[in-house]
């Protein structure tokens, strides 16, 4: 079982905070190259289909230091999106027909311009998703009104909760996180989130607390609904079961716990071509805190920029992005295993 260090890999100057070292490790594993797997079902080169979702990482700063975090986020990370880059995001969005803006981090709410950004997006009538870690709502008085703010802008809240018990949740996300998460969920429920008829969407995100694949999404959702309702009187809409991808802190965990080889083999064995054809990068672009553009949040953390004409918001070229070939690597097996995995849960 892992021990939370309370420091990012970056602050520890850990070798796996280096992108090149991660890519080297992924390459070393004696596995079928991901692109060969795609070729077996004529999916290589993997092409984008459209740009319907803007996933924007507004910064790596977070109040938590989770064991599995692919962003290597934490209180010691200072990379934060400026208002100027946010404005570039808004300008780029105007050049597309995208329906959804998905805000992530770190804890996106810690960005000092988060509320301003949401207000601008809200005025554009886009569906807004905020990936809220829950504890931020109770971390400081200034965040206590977030449920009301979310409600005002009809934001869809997607929140991580690895399990309905404190042992598993705290092992992955830190001591006391479960109790704080329950408190925050109650606050969201109080303003109407997750309740039938309110239109206020509260989804939960499950990812395994260890080196194994997620359970069947619907069956797990039924369990979560039952347990959270009976134990805490908490309601929510959908549960997304997400697979952990072998990058950053989760990669470090796999190596340190001697699970790396076994986990990678498992991902490859579970490769599902149906999931591969539905991967989220085909209709999404991911924007980094500094305005660079990527195929997904994972490629962003590996600094694998889009293979398109404009790699930065200042050179945003929607035509080139829609027609781009997606950059794939061995970590992509994480999105194609079993029922597949995306920020919206399973895809097959």
């Amino acid at each position: 079982m892992g021990v939370l260090t309370h420091k990012s890999l970056s602050a520890q100057k850990h070798e796996l905070s280096e992108v090149d070292r991660q890519l080297e490790l992924l390459k070393q594993a004696d596995l079928t190259p991901f692109q060969d797997k795609l070729s077996e079902t004529d999916l290589f080169p993997l092409k984008a289909l459209n740009v319907d979702v803007f996933q924007i990482n507004v910064g790596k700063m977070c109040n938590q230091v989770c064991n599995h975090c692919h962003v290597d986020a934490g209180p010691d990370r200072k990379e934060i999106m400026t208002r100027e880059t946010m404005q570039q995001c808004l300008d780029a969005i105007d050049k597309t027909t995208c329906s959804t803006v998905d805000l992530t981090g770190g804890a996106p709410e810690m960005n000092p311009d988060f509320r301003w950004f949401v207000e601008q997006l809200s005025a554009k009538g886009k569906k807004i998703i905020v990936r809220c870690n829950l504890t931020i709502i109770v971390a400081n008085k200034k965040y206590n009104d977030l449920p009301e703010f979310f409600k005002k802008h009809k934001i869809e809240v997607a929140s991580s909760l690895p399990y309905f018990t404190s042992a598993k949740t705290d092992a992955q996300r830190g001591d006391g996180v479960f109790d704080k998460s329950i408190k925050a969920l109650k606050m969201l429920n109080e303003v109407g989130y997750g309740k039938e008829g309110t239109g206020l969407v509260l989804d939960l995100v499950y990812n395994p607390s260890g080196a194994f694949l997620p359970p069947d999404q619907l069956s797990l959702q039924a369990d979560f609904k039952k347990k959270l309702k009976t134990r805490f009187d908490i309601v929510f809409n959908q549960l997304y079961a997400i697979t952990n991808l072998p990058i950053s802190r989760y990669l470090e965990y796999l190596v340190a716990s001697e699970n790396y080889e076994g986990y990678m083999n498992k991902l490859v064995e579970a490769y599902n071509p149906v999931a591969a054809s539905n991967v989220m990068c085909r209709n999404t672009i991911s924007i980094g805190w500094d305005g660079y553009i990527f195929d997904c949040d994972f490629n962003q953390m590996l600094d694998l920029k889009v293979a398109a004409k404009g790699q930065h918001l200042k050179d945003f070229d929607i035509e080139s992005l829609v027609n781009r070939t997606i950059i794939v690597n061995q970590h992509c097996y994480g999105c194609t295993a079993g029922s597949g995995s995306s920020c919206g849960g399973t895809v097959a």
Partner: peptide
Amino acid sequence: TEDAMEKGCD
């Protein structure tokens, strides 16, 4: 053990 974990058992 692994299968039960992947089926959501604790």
